[in-house]
Design a protein around this nucleic acid. Structure first.
Length: 477
DNA sequence: CGGGCCTGATATACATCAGGCCCGGTGCGGTATT
C-alpha cells in the first residue's frame, strides 16, 4: 500500500490532510470511481493532484471556466510542474495544433466540456493513457447541462468512448437532485464511493430582512462597516446602479461585476477585489466560482437567490478564513418572479425548437441563421442522440418543473421561522445532523450582536482610477 | 410572472382609468467582418 502521507509531504510539503482529502485519495488509489462533496473551495484540487503523481498515466480535468483552468494551471506551474496544459479557446490555431500533436507528453490536461466534444480534440483523447478523469465543479452537470451548457450531458458518452476511465467528481453542492444527476451521467453502470461532508458553515450567521427600501438598508449597514463584501443581484442593470450609488456615498471603492464585462475588465476587477483595492463588489451570479478570497466578511443578496444550492454557494464565499461572517438576504415580495421568467424563457427556447421536428437536414439549414446559440447546440445533441425527441421533450418538462420548485423552496426558506442553519442542512438531506450554535441565525439567536469587523481594520483610500472607469462605463450606455 | 410606465380615450377643462408594452442570468466557442 502506498503511503499517501509521505507523498503529501514529498509533493506538497504538508504534514496532514484536510477534511475529506485522505478518504478521496485512498478511494481513487484503490481504483474506485469517487464522488466527493467538500463544503469550501479549498483543498479540492489536491484530491486529484496527489493521486495523479502516484499513477503512471495522464490526468484529465474537465473544468467549467477558462479562468478556473488558468488558475489551476498557474498554481501547478508555481509548484514546479511543467507538464500541464489547458485546452480551450485561448489557444491560437497553431498552438492548439501543436498541443494536440504532443498531448501524450502532458501529465495534467485541463479542458472545457465543449472543447472535449470537438471531433479533432476528442480523437486525440481516445489515444491517451488516462489514469484519472476528473470532473471539477461537477454540480454544473445538473445545474447547466440540461439547458445552458448541453455539452455537460455529453460527458456520459465521452466516458463510454474512453472505455470508462477511473473517474472522480468534485463539488461543493450535493442535494439529492445534483447527486442523482451526477450518478446518472457519470457513474450510471458502475459502483462508486461517495464522500459527502456537511454543508454547515459554523462561522456564517444567517439573516433575512424583508425591506421596502433596500438601498437605504445597504447605506445603513455599510456606513458602519469597513470589511470586504459581496452584494449579489439578479439583474446586471441593478448591480451597476447600486454600485454607482454606493460608490458615491462610501469612503472606499465599490465596483460592479457581471457577464457583460470584457474578459480583461473581469480579471482586473477580480484582482482589485482580492487585493482590497475594491472593497465591495456588486455582482450577478457570474462572479465567484473559483475565487479564493479569504477575508470576505459579508455576502448580501439584494435579490432572492433562485435556489438554496446557489444561495449556499454564494453565501459560502464569506468567511473562508474561518472568522465570524454574515449572510443577509434582502427580500421584497415579488423578487422571485425574475427567476420564474428566466426559467420560462429557457423553456420557450426549447419549445421553439419543437417545430423543427420531422424536418430533414436540408430543411434545417434554412433555419440555421434564425436559431439561437443554444438551439443550435440542442440540434447538435439531438443529432448525436439519433433525434430522440420523446426523451428530449420529457426532459424539457421535468427540468422546468424542477427549477421552479427550487425557487419556491427558496421562498419557503425566507418565510421559515425556525433555525435557518438547520433548514439549509435539511435541504441538503443531512437530516441526522442536528445543529446548535451560540451564534446561529436571526431566528435562533436574534439577540447576539454579530461582530465580524477586524479591530485594526484601516480604511484604504479610494482608487481614483477605478471610479473613473465606472463613470465612463455608465455614460457610454 | 408582474410592477412600472406610457398612451389614448373619456369627458369636460383637470383628472382618471383601461390597455398595451417593457424588462430580466449563468459561458463555452474559432461564427464572419469591419
Amino acid at each position: 500500500m502506498i503511503d499517501t502521507k509521505e507523498a503529501l509531504k514529498k509533493y506538497f510539503g504538508f504534514d496532514s490532510f484536510k477534511i475529506g482529502q485522505k478518504e478521496t485519495i485512498d478511494s481513487i488509489l484503490r481504483g474506485a470511481d469517487t464522488f466527493t462533496v467538500l463544503p469550501t473551495g479549498t483543498g479540492k484540487s489536491l484530491c486529484y493532484q496527489l493521486p495523479s503523481y502516484l499513477m503512471s498515466g495522464q490526468t484529465v480535468i474537465v473544468s467549467p471556466l477558462i479562468s478556473l483552468m488558468e488558475d489551476q494551471v498557474s498554481q501547478l506551474r508555481q509548484m514546479g510542474e511543467k507538464s500541464v496544459i489547458a485546452i480551450n479557446s485561448t489557444l491560437d490555431f497553431s498552438t492548439k495544433k501543436y498541443v494536440l500533436a504532443h498531448l501524450k507528453e502532458f501529465k495534467f490536461i485541463f479542458i472545457s466540456p465543449e472543447a472535449l466534444n470537438q471531433e479533432e480534440v476528442f480523437n486525440v483523447f481516445k489515444r491517451l493513457n488516462i489514469s484519472l478523469f476528473v470532473i471539477d465543479e461537477a454540480h454544473c452537470i445538473s445545474e447547466w447541462g440540461h439547458d445552458f451548457r448541453p455539452s455537460y450531458l455529453q460527458l456520459k458518452e465521452n466516458l463510454n468512448q474512453l472505455n470508462q476511465p477511473l473517474t472522480l467528481a468534485l463539488t461543493a453542492t450535493a442535494t439529492e437532485t445534483v447527486k442523482k444527476d451526477i450518478e446518472q451521467e457519470l457513474f450510471a453502470t458502475r459502483d462508486f464511493n461517495e464522500f459527502i461532508y456537511s454543508v454547515n458553515r459554523e462561522n456564517i450567521y444567517y439573516q433575512v430582512e424583508e425591506c421596502e427600501d433596500k438601498v437605504e438598508y445597504l447605506k445603513q449597514f455599510l456606513l458602519t462597516k469597513n470589511s470586504p463584501g459581496i452584494i449579489y443581484f439578479s439583474s446586471k442593470k441593478e448591480a451597476e446602479r447600486v454600485a454607482m450609488l454606493l460608490n458615491e456615498i462610501l469612503p472606499y471603492s465599490v465596483a460592479f461585476y457581471h457577464g457583460d464585462l470584457s474578459g480583461a475588465d473581469r480579471i482586473k476587477i477580480q484582482q482589485q477585489f482580492i487585493h482590497d483595492e475594491i472593497r465591495i463588489l456588486c455582482a450577478t451570479s457570474a462572479f465567484g466560482m473559483g475565487v479564493n478570497k479569504e477575508n470576505i466578511r459579508f455576502v448580501i443578496h439584494y435579490h432572492l437567490p433562485d435556489s438554496l444550492e446557489n444561495y449556499v454557494q454564494e453565501s459560502g464565499r464569506a468567511g473562508r478564513d474561518g472568522k465570524q461572517s454574515i449572510s443577509i438576504i434582502l427580500y421584497q415580495k415579488g423578487d422571485e418572479r425574475i427567476h420564474y421568467y428566466l426559467q420560462d424563457e429557457s423553456y420557450h427556447q426549447k419549445k421553439d425548437l419543437l417545430f423543427l421536428k420531422g424536418k430533414t437536414k436540408e430543411d434545417l439549414k434554412k433555419y440555421d441563421n434564425s436559431l439561437t446559440d443554444i438551439q443550435k447546440k440542442w440540434l447538435n445533441m439531438l443529432e448525436k442522440n439519433n433525434w430522440n425527441w420523446e426523451k428530449f421533450e420529457q426532459n424539457l418538462n421535468s427540468k422546468q418543473f424542477e427549477k421552479r420548485t427550487k425557487t419556491q423552496k427558496m421562498g419557503f426558506y425566507i418565510e421559515n421561522k425556525s433555525c435557518r442553519r438547520q433548514s439549509i442542512i435539511n435541504y441538503f438531506n443531512n437530516h441526522y445532523e442536528k445543529v446548535s450554535q451560540e451564534i446561529c441565525c436571526d431566528n435562533c439567536t436574534p439577540d447576539k450582536i454579530i461582530n465580524f469587523e477586524e479591530k485594526d481594520g484601516t480604511i484604504l483610500k479610494k482608487e481614483p482610477f477605478n471610479s473613473k472607469e465606472l463613470l465612463k462605463k455608465l455614460f457610454l450606455i
